[in-house]
């Protein structure tokens, strides 16, 4: 084979793999966004900032203890608690009115960003690679951490599926998503379901942030980039559709990743945007929208 073509194929496979692994991380964040919207009609502008805080807390955990797991667990535990406080304290009065939830979550986002700026600082930080090993497979060398991320996110996605479809709390969440009043009448505490779901979404975002922190730079405004990507995915998949969100993540992220072989990352994002626009023109409610 022509060495140029071999070289290109090698890079293509590498970039495509990166795209799929990134898709798994983004899917965690986007699924939280989709769950929260599907249940409470909250358009959570602060979701990117919950992800950012996941990365920041993981950075603190790793810097202080040197153990990556401590960082991940710290991020998820703290953000889960923050999620309950935000839902109960700030969002409860405006749930169900998307425009108002945007206003309130913009406010939450500003506060989350400024607190990060005040404590973590304004300069991007690089997290050291927690598993600096290289895995070699069929002549392609691949960073071990990314393989680890693929494993953990897949497990987390499976865990989410088990939680939503095999536990009674998951059943209550899905029941409330379908018909809030009926679920309430059947004895489901919709109020508790809301708090749990928002906390779950925040924990998924934090897990995404923690897993992404060694790959991307940790920065107090890193949330916007992911928020936009997650929104594109949620729209392509259909707002509130979990299956759609997962499928869309697995289409959009690898597509964007492969595009970076030809164009700049920004132009690749524009291509994702155009892809989304095209999907909307054909299917205004997204691929799996009801």
């Amino acid at each position: 084979m022509d060495p140029m073509i071999a070289e290109f194929l090698n890079r293509f496979i590498l970039v495509l793999t990166n795209g799929f692994i990134w898709a798994l991380i983004v899917a965690l964040v986007a699924l939280g966004l989709s769950l929260i919207f599907g249940l409470m009609e909250i358009v959570n502008i602060a979701h990117g900032d919950l992800y950012m805080w996941g990365a920041v807390l993981a950075w603190y955990g790793v810097t202080l203890t040197g153990n990556f797991w401590v960082g991940v667990i710290l991020a998820m535990a703290v953000m889960g608690g923050v999620g309950i406080v935000l839902e109960r304290g700030a969002l409860r009065p405006v749930e169900g009115i998307p425009a108002y939830t945007v206003v309130v979550t913009i406010g939450i986002g500003y506060i989350l960003q400024q607190v990060a700026l005040a404590t973590f600082g304004g300069s991007p930080q690089k997290m050291p690679d927690p598993f600096p090993i290289v895995i070699e497979f069929l002549g392609v060398r691949y960073p071990g951490y990314r393989v680890f991320v693929a494993g953990v996110s897949t497990l987390a996605l499976l865990g989410l599926w088990v939680f939503l479809f095999k536990t009674s709390i998951g059943l209550w969440i899905r029941a409330s998503m379908q018909d809030r009043e009926m679920a309430n009448a059947m004895g489901v505490s919709v109020s508790k379901v809301y708090a749990v779901t928002f906390a779950l979404g925040a924990m998924l975002a934090a897990l995404g942030g923690a897993l992404a922190s060694p790959i991307v730079q940790v920065f107090y405004l890193m949330g916007y980039d992911l928020l936009v990507l997650a929104f594109i995915i949620v729209i392509v998949g259909g707002l509130g559709s979990l299956k759609g969100t997962l499928v869309a993540a697995l289409i959009v992220c690898p597509l964007e990743s492969v595009m970076t072989l030809i164009v700049t990352p920004t132009e690749a994002r524009v291509i994702s945007f155009l892809f989304m626009a095209a999907v909307l023109l054909v299917k205004p409610k997204g691929l799996f929208g009801a």
């Binding site: 936009v228 994002r269 524009v270």
Partner: peptide
């Protein structure tokens, strides 16, 4: 509705990133 909010955020970010790039 909610789609409109989200789409406007997305196109704003696309323009912002392009103007940086």
């Amino acid at each position: 509705g909610a789609y409109f909010v989200i789409i406007t955020i997305i196109f704003n970010m696309v323009f912002y990133l392009l103007s940086l790039d």
